[in-house]
């Protein structure tokens, strides 16, 4: 049901590229805000993936109208609406946590945080 003759598999290559960029940011950057940005990029790549899956060659927006035979598949759009909401919640919560981290540690660099935590562990300070 999904026609992929145009633009070939190119769109999937872009999705894949975007996905890797997002993943790379999450893994490589120590700054927590950047990590969350990376997560967003990663998620967006998935959104694009679903949308491009939904595209039907020659199809139009899935609104019932006279004289139109071919529609794009509306279901992935709906799914992605849900996923966007979930992503939004995730981003909001993540950023809120970053704010709290900044308040209690004074830094938001993951490697420095780890060092601080190990130090706290060694001191046996549980409070």
């Amino acid at each position: 049901m999904v026609d992929l003759s145009f633009p070939g598999l190119l769109n999937y290559w872009f999705v894949f590229l975007l996905m890797l960029i997002g993943l790379y940011i999450v893994i490589a950057h120590e700054n927590l805000i950047k990590k969350i940005v990376g997560l967003n990029v990663f998620q967006v790549s998935v959104f694009v993936f679903y949308i491009s899956v939904a595209k039907v060659k020659g199809g139009t927006a899935p609104i019932l109208a006279d004289g139109i035979e071919v529609y794009s598949n509306p279901l992935p759009h709906v799914l992605i609406l849900t996923a966007i909401v979930v992503g939004l919640a995730m981003t909001a919560l993540g950023l809120a946590l970053v704010v709290r981290v900044q308040e209690s540690f004074g830094i938001i660099e993951d490697d420095e945080l780890r060092a601080l935590e190990d130090q706290q562990e060694d001191e046996g300070n549980n409070a």
Binding site: K35, F42, Q43, V86, G94, L97, V101, E117
Partner: peptide, 16 residues
Amino acid sequence: LTAALRYLILGTLGAT
């Protein structure tokens, strides 16, 4: 806080 944040990042990756 950091535990939650790291869990959030890995958890979101997993879900995605």
